[in-house]
Design a protein around this nucleic acid. Structure first.
Lengths: 158, 158
DNA sequence: CAGTATGTTCAGTCAATAATGAACGGTTGG
DNA sequence: CCAACCGTTCATTATTGACTGAACATACTG
């Protein structure tokens, strides 16, 4: 009966994966197209051209442009050249996942600093409030630490 | 000169903190009002009534209703009673930050499972793609682990 | 040099979602 | 019992941000 293993073609599996990562990316605050680009590059493994991305994902070149810029800025993909082709090519960088985690750590660090700045504005007389706000900052510091550890683990354990 | 310590009143510091957390919450995918509610409750430390929240934050009661429901569902605040007052009161729960981290861990776990499901649809012949998709799933598993560790640390170290 | 390909930018459109405020059901106190 | 109060729900509005597509600047090719 094969109830547990509905057979799918390689093509369908690839398309499903790309769409799924698109949704996950969206839920994490990235544009959906950026997630789909990353998924496509990850799945295919080899360099893919700017034009191929646009046609494969059925989106405008403008969207590809902004998406790859976001992914580059987060150190998840890199732009590479291909001899004899004027187009830009892209591929996933080494340790992309570790970089992803480190970006989260950086955000946590920023939030911590932000809250600590608020803390400095609170009069010393407000001991209770100061303590509670400080614990909030400490929470973000703990996030930063934990994420850095995870990033390192991903880098080594790879 | 006092350039480093612009003096602010306690009221201003409180308002700034609340607004700041509102923005951070927004950047993390929560409604801004929910972040402001959490910040107010954290800053004040004691139970605050439904009506006080609406007037203090200058938002509709409908917004308060949905915000507190979100925060309750994430185990960040709880609804408490006050003798002689029909209103609902709210306060931050113990270990709220640990709960916050655990919610993130749960999301990572979900994403991992989601990707592993995709992995099972990829034909065994696609060895390269399977390997890369598996590494993506492993990334989310690592996030789950790391976040669980951070949550525990927050729970103890508190 | 002319013509074409390439990636970026930006104004405009559209969809998703946050927030409002009125209507509602349920509870309480007088 | 009823009047006031309380929290939720839901239709509507406002806002935000992704996406498009055309205009543009640049670089290559023949």
């Amino acid at each position: 009966m094969n109830r547990n293993k509905p057979i799918k073609s390689a093509e369908t599996a690839r398309a499903d994966f790309i769409e799924k990562i698109g949704m996950i990316a969206q839920s994490e605050g990235l544009p959906r197209i950026a997630g789909r680009v990353l998924a496509l590059l990850l799945y295919d493994g080899e360099r893919v051209s700017f034009g191929q991305l646009a046609t494969a994902l059925q989106v405008s070149r403008g969207s590809i442009s902004s998406s790859v810029r976001i992914l580059e800025s987060q150190q998840l993909i890199k732009r590479v050249a291909k001899a004899g082709d004027r187009q830009d090519y892209f591929q996933v960088v080494n340790n992309a996942f570790a970089n992803m985690v480190e970006a989260s750590a950086a955000r946590a660090r920023l939030a911590a600093a932000d809250i600590e700045e608020s803390l400095n504005e609170i009069p010393l007389s407000e001991t209770g409030a100061r303590e509670r706000v400080a614990s909030y900052a400490a929470f973000y510091r703990a996030m930063d630490d934990g994420l850095k550890t995870t990033a390192e683990a991903l880098r080594n354990n790879k």
